[in-house]
């Protein structure tokens, strides 16, 4: 299979590409040329959908930030979202039940957590215990 230039179908959006870290392999099919492979960045319409998921993650993070600062949820909720984790996965990393992680999302329960538990959360989040417990870190 030879290399071809990637030509997007008619009507494909032609905007600036956000992600240009790595070129990937894409397959193409054309009645005349048959199957070809080309090495390229994700086309701009794919970049739109990749960006969508990061924008959505960012939006979720801003919402959690507000809830944590308002005292509705604990900082665990914020860093869980920041690391794109969800409760079952975080529970697997913590090696505890999901229901216990869910409890730790409550500010009241969070305040009573032991140092070793806080340390374990902090390690998973890649931060220090001080950063986990001080709201200053979340404000910025």
């Amino acid at each position: 299979m030879g290399k071809t230039e990637q030509t997007p179908p008619e009507g494909a959006p032609q905007e600036e590409k956000y992600y240009t870290y790595n070129r990937e392999i894409f397959y193409h099919f054309d009645k005349e040329k048959g199957y070809t492979r080309a090495n390229d960045y994700q086309n701009s319409s794919n970049q739109v959908i990749i960006k969508q998921s990061w924008d959505a993650a960012d939006e979720r993070l801003q919402e959690v930030r507000q809830r944590v600062l308002a005292g509705i949820q604990s900082p665990v909720a914020f860093f869980m979202e920041k690391r794109l984790l969800e409760v079952p996965m975080l529970a697997a990393y913590m090696e505890i039940g999901a229901w216990r992680v869910r409890r730790h999302l409550k500010p009241g329960v969070f305040k009573k957590l032991s140092q070793p538990t806080l340390k374990k959360y902090a390690d998973i989040f890649g931060i220090t215990v001080e950063q986990l417990t001080s709201l200053d870190f979340i404000k910025n």
Binding site: P8, P9, G11, A12, P13, Y27, F29, D30, K31, G34, Y35, S45, N46, V48, I49
Partner: peptide
Amino acid sequence: GENANKWREFSYKGSR
């Protein structure tokens, strides 16, 4: 191959 092109068209249109 034609079918794959149809899927790709679906994703181009959908991404809008």
